[in-house]
Structure formats: C-alpha cells, structure tokens
C-alpha cells in the first residue's frame, strides 16, 4: 500500500537525480574552500536534493499524499500521451519534412484525433495557421525555418 503512494515514487526519482548530480560533482572535482572547483556546487546541491527527496519519499512510506493511481483517475490521459507522441514525431520529422508540412500534419492530428473538431474548421484553421506563420516568419521576419531535407528538391519556393 505504502509503495503505491505518489510521494514515494516522486521522492525516489529525485533521490536518483540528486545522487547522480552529487556523483558528477565529485568527478568534476570539488576543489578547496579557498578555491572551489567546477564540481563544488554540483556536489553540495546533489546532496541537498538527496536530503529533501529522502524526506519526501519517507513521507510517502508513512502514507502521506495521494495514491499513484489517483493522480490519473478520471483524467483523459490518452490525450496527453497522443500529444507527447505527436510532438516527438514532430521533432524527428521537422528538419526532414520541413516546417509547413510538419505543422500542418501536427495541427490536423491534434484537431482530428486528440480533441476532434469539425473538418470544416480543422482543415482551414490548420492550413491558414501553418502557411500564415511560415509566411510571417520566413518572408517578413526573415527567420529561417527548415524546408525539409526529404522534399526540398521538389518545392519551387
């Protein structure tokens, strides 16, 4: 039961982060108090994180805070997962497909699959937004956006 507490798992995560940071600080060299080294602040902050996260995890073991499952009870977590996956896909395809195609695909996906709106709205909004932002940034503000390494040979502008 105690192991199902969100506080316990949150504390455990930051405990690992703190230990890792302290270890990295140690490797970077602590130096001396007269001349602190590159790892001085990392090491001590890592230990501070370990201390706080341990107290949080212990609180979880004592039964403090909500259960892990309660955090997502009644939530539309599928939407969150879809948006994160869409963003990751966007990141990988951004330079390969270019800004306009990627943005268009992302907007259509979000407005069709994640939280659906009528196609009569989603299609024009996506088109206007993707092309409009591209035009303002690329042509007016002269910000270079990826053209798409896979398709740049086929686009005339």
């Amino acid at each position: 039961m105690m192991l199902r507490r969100a506080e316990f798992w949150g504390g455990l995560f930051w405990l690992a982060v703190g230990a890792f940071v302290a270890w990295q600080g140690w490797l970077l060299e602590l130096g001396t108090l007269r001349e602190p080294g590159s790892g001085f602040v990392f090491f001590w902050l890592g230990l501070i994180i370990v201390a706080f996260s341990t107290s949080i995890a212990i609180g979880g073991l004592r039964g403090e805070g909500p259960l892990l499952g309660d955090l997502w009870r009644g939530a539309r977590w599928r939407n969150v997962l879809l948006v994160v996956l869409a963003l990751i896909a966007f990141g990988f395809l951004f330079e390969r497909l270019g800004f306009v195609l990627c943005s268009l695909a992302l907007l259509l996906f979000l407005m069709t699959v994640v939280d659906p709106v009528r196609p009569t709205i989603s299609i024009p909004v996506s088109l206007i937004a993707a092309v409009g932002v591209w035009y303002v940034l690329e042509k007016m503000l002269l910000v270079q956006l990826p053209k798409g390494t896979w398709i740049e040979d086929y686009i005339p502008f």
Partner: peptide, 15 residues
C-alpha cells in the same frame, strides 16, 4: 473553443 486554441498555442511554442 480550447480544442482549437491549444493546437495553435502548441505550434507557436514550437516556432
């Protein structure tokens, strides 16, 4: 509606 706003905000974030 938020379902139209959030994709646009997300795109602006990326840009």
């Amino acid at each position: 509606p938020y379902k139209i706003l959030f994709p646009l905000i997300l795109m602006f974030c990326i840009v």
